[in-house]
Design a protein around this nucleic acid. Structure first.
Length: 242
DNA sequence: CGCTTTTGACCGGCGC
DNA sequence: GCGCCGGTCAAAAGCG
């Protein structure tokens, strides 16, 4: 089908991003203060309120970082999904309008939280990070592949020959922190190019300590961070948003 | 029994 | 205006 975006031979992926992306192996994280900051703030450790979320536009673009640099199809992300008003009784969630308890705060602009992502080589999708998560959704997402990628499946190769790109799909899972006061979310999906790689994207900051690590809470330097991460995460690459 | 996961449907933004 | 798609909801099912 043609639900794929128009392929851009000019290297759309390479040039479209305004973002300074650093792919930093976590083991050498010491070389990047910015990455350090991003990671800390993402986890709610040693928080740096540098991002005030007052620029929804920029956060909207954050989403595109992992997408573009990981070879995903470009996503159009809404930076400020204004769930607006109100008067519609056809409540959100697509459920019967009879649920007053579910009064979602409409009319309030949803503000994108700072995000960062891990690329981790792992067999398990959901990596232990010391917090408890609850899955609230899952999506099958389509991914467009463009020239320069290895094509190992014959049928995909045929598709590639005729269109210049081909589509595969992957599964994306959505989790939120089980702490009722914590609004942190994370998104987990497999890399389309390398299924052994798990991409975990965090959004927001934890307002509480970890439950899995004995010494949760504020940490002061990157060595500690690495020690806090589970073995799986120590092989991670961090996508930094600056 | 309570918590978590699965799953289909819906909402709203965005591109065409 | 329409269709696509990301993100979310919530009922039902699963599990300890």
């Amino acid at each position: 089908m043609d639900d794929a975006p128009n392929p851009d031979p000019g290297g759309h992926f390479a040039t479209d991003s305004n973002w300074n992306l650093a792919l930093t192996p976590i083991t050498s994280i010491t070389s990047s203060l910015a990455t350090e900051r991003a990671v800390y703030s993402g986890f709610g450790w040693n928080l740096q309120p540098g991002h005030t979320s007052s620029e929804p536009g920029s956060f909207g673009d954050l989403d595109r970082i992992d997408a573009e640099n990981l070879g995903f199809a470009p996503e159009s992300i809404s930076s400020s999904s204004s769930e607006d008003p109100p008067d519609k009784s056809t409540g959100s969630g697509g459920k019967p309008p009879e649920i007053p308890s579910k009064v979602r705060k409409k009319g309030q602009k949803r503000i994108r939280q700072p995000r960062f992502a891990f690329m981790t080589k792992s067999e398990v999708d959901h990596l232990e990070d010391g917090y408890r998560w609850r899955k609230y959704g899952q999506k099958a997402v389509k991914i467009a592949h463009f020239p320069g990628l290895k094509i190992e499946q014959p049928d995909l190769y045929v598709s590639f020959r005729s269109t210049g790109y081909f589509i595969t799909s992957t599964k994306r899972s959505y989790y939120r922190c089980t702490n009722s006061k914590c609004t942190v979310k994370k998104r987990v999906e497999r890399s389309s190019e390398d299924p052994t790689i798990v991409i975990t994207t965090y959004e927001g900051q934890h307002c509480h300590h970890t439950v899995g690590f004995p010494r949760g809470g504020i940490i002061s330097h990157e060595a500690t961070l690495v020690n806090h991460l589970t073995p799986q995460f120590r092989n991670s690459i961090i996508l930094e948003f600056s």
